[in-house]
Design a protein around this nucleic acid. Sequence first.
DNA 1: AAACGAGACAACCGCATTACT
DNA 2: TAGTAATGCGGTTGTCTCGTT
Length: 516
Amino acid sequence: MQPLPTKQPSAATFVAVIFLALVAPFVAMGRAPCCDKANVKKGPWSPEEDAKLKSFIEHNGTGGNWITLPSKAGLKRCGKSCRLRWINYLRPDIKHGSFTEEEEKTIYRLHAQIGSRWSLIAAQLPGRTDNDIKNYWNTRLKKKLLERASNMWCGRPHHSFQIYPMNQPANDQMSNAVGREGLLNSQFLHAQAYYQYVQQQQPQYYLPQQQQQPQPIQDPSQTVQLPTVLQHQLHMRSIKNELVDEHQQQQAPTGGVVESERLRDIESSLRSIVDESSSRTFDARRAFQRLHCLSNRLPANGNPMSPAAVATSHHNTSPTSSCSNLSSDRNSFGVQQIADSAFSDSGYTMYEDPAAREPSTTMLNTSILGSASQQQVASLPDTSTPESLLSTSRFEDGVFDDLSMYNRSQDLSEVAVVDRALGTGGVKEESHQASGGGSADWWANMDLVAPPGPLNQKSTVLAANSMMRWSIPTPRCGAENIYNSPQAQLTSQSHGTQPLDGMNSYSDSFLSKLIS
DNA sequence: AAACGAGACAACCGCATTACT
DNA sequence: TAGTAATGCGGTTGTCTCGTT
């Protein structure tokens, strides 16, 4: 009986064994390196290497494959390294040397519009590389901006900006948080972008004196595409404004409470807007919150532009009344701004955190932190949109002097109230500046946001307003914490008013009814 | 003259995206 | 359509230069 022949390994088995023994360990560790690190030179390039690379590419091109290029060119370099050296330094169309003032302005503008998308910014500056611009930003421009922001927020005259009732350390904390972080974060820069974009799209709100001028024809290749989220935001905002107009026409006799059925329609339309234009997730609660903002913006007594409402709003410039006005602003645009900024920040995905999904009234309740009576709130004009702002007599009188800011500096539970006394309404005059209407740096920073051309009352106030509003950070804490925080209680006490419990429960019941 | 630090710029690293099979 | 390689991109680190002590 012959022994059974020993089974010989097949070719496939052989390959598999080799693979497992030699290749798999590296695969298992992750992605294979793009080159043999041990035999590749790193560090600065020598003139000889530069010459080799330049000569090779000029004669042969890159061949569409940077990985194999170094060996073909006789260089002991990684393909990535070669690519970077060529793109950032050796390319013939590279512009070396310092940046011009014009280029600086372009970088500021584009960074405000699109953030640190260096490659996109570089595309707008011929001869400059993304690396170049990134370095220039990080070493020079950012510092300049920081300095200006710091001067703006921390070096201001005391009576121009009063933060109360915080104590001095809290005041400093606020200044630091807003001035050094808030103003320089992408939110502020995106705010500028948004402002500039709206300014461009709806110049009637911002540049009434320029309406007569013919609009310059824009070269499409020179325009910058806004981030998708911003586009969506603008889209939703326009829808929202339409809805507000519609409700105002109806006079909202029930105090702005829109019928649930109607809300469902609106929610549905908002959802479809987002679903159509984005594959990202969309939270229905967000829509409800936004819709609630819409209803909140319709005062109980009807149209905010009514003579009674406007009359009540006249000349409220004492600290107490300013604070009261702030509640109105919170009511009308505070929530809206928070929702907007959260929405913008989130990229439609902020509710990935289950804890954040839970308190559905978080955003709503932040609207009633203030200390005004419900009646006071209801009687004040809406200042949440450029349209309404321009049509309020407070503005016409040049006494749009109060704004609220939410402080997210440490525990997200403090509300800082900033009373900005613009005096004459923001007219850029030496005397006004000297009297505490803002330091030179403040005005210099304003120029970043203000519309082009000479500043007038409207454009200045709008720019300041926009700047302040959009620098509001996004609170992500529970409303209870904010509402019951010592600072909130203190605010309430110091102004002799009561928390708006009724409105609080109204908000809760309103939303719970809708969501259920 | 040496040490040190700050600023500017070049280069690298690793993740994300795109292209290709 | 899935898997993989190549490329793009932005944050970070490394290196050099120059001024100050």
